[in-house]
Amino acid sequence: MLHDLSLDVRAGELLGLLGPSGSGKTTLLRIIAGLDRPDSGRIIFGGDDATRMPVQERAVGFVFQHYALFKHMTVADNIAYGLNARKRSERPAKAEIKKRVSDLLDLIKLSNFGDRYPSQLSGGQRQRIALARALAVEPRVLLLDEPFGALDAQVRKDLRRWLREIHDRTGQTTIFVTHDQDEALELSDRVAVLDRGRLEQIGTPDEVQEQPASPTVLKFLGDTIEVEAIAQGGRVLVNGRETPVTAPTNAVGPVKLYVRPWQLQFANEEHAHLNGFVRSSYRAQGRQRIEIDRPGGGLLVVEASDNARLAAGLPVGLRINSGYVFAD
């Protein structure tokens, strides 16, 4: 289900559609491809209205989540499929198709795999074949549905870098769907964050991270701590103490202050905005993660770089260095 939304994709860019499952991102992708039909609204490619255009004529490249490779065809036949499906008058000559296939196999670094069948390939290799197959028809826009969803963590990382390289080399306008923030932020020129069928924000990875448009975007992009605060003329107070955070002018009275774990710092009693008792701490990827019980209930997880192990039960104070307050 999608609500009215408008998305402008720039030529040559790599756009990530980011959102939790059920946010409508795959539906949007399928509507752009012509696989699903919108009840209202329009799809425009370049200057052409493509809304009523059948899927065959849209000239999109679609890479399916589970690749949808043709099992009974060799890799080369899979890649050549779109060219062979053309009307005789528009179909390239056999030799040319062969050349195109071998160029694409080189591009995806599977030069000697033309005669194999999809079942003989690994997940990552299949993914690359699916991409080559989509690129073979020289699509106006390349659409990828959760391109790395079905792969192992290590393969994912390699393929991400590789996709970025391919994009930089071909300059192909590309839209991909993902529910993985890291993936979207690492790969995209711009990220569109979707939630429950609405477009929450579109911007460069830096923009969406530094100036999230809504709590939804903020929460979706990483761990967030919610703190009760009071806004007064642009200033934000927590437990009666002023914080360095500025609030939008129309936010007045009780507000929610959103803080990332790394925007908190241990501080002594007179500088602390928050306090509590250490419940436990553990180390992960070179940083300490400390769980803190707040009086009156609630659990905080903060990050610290120092190596000091904090004993359970220790009272601590936390200072808010920065954070986000949104207008209602």
């Binding site: 065959q56 679609f62 949808a68 779109g82 499906a85 197959r133 989509a134 028809v137």
Partner: peptide, 13 residues
């Protein structure tokens, strides 16, 4: 229907 959809996006009737 994924394989059929793939074929359609590649321009097949």
């Amino acid at each position: 229907t994924a394989e059929e959809e793939a074929a359609l996006t590649l321009g097949a009737s």
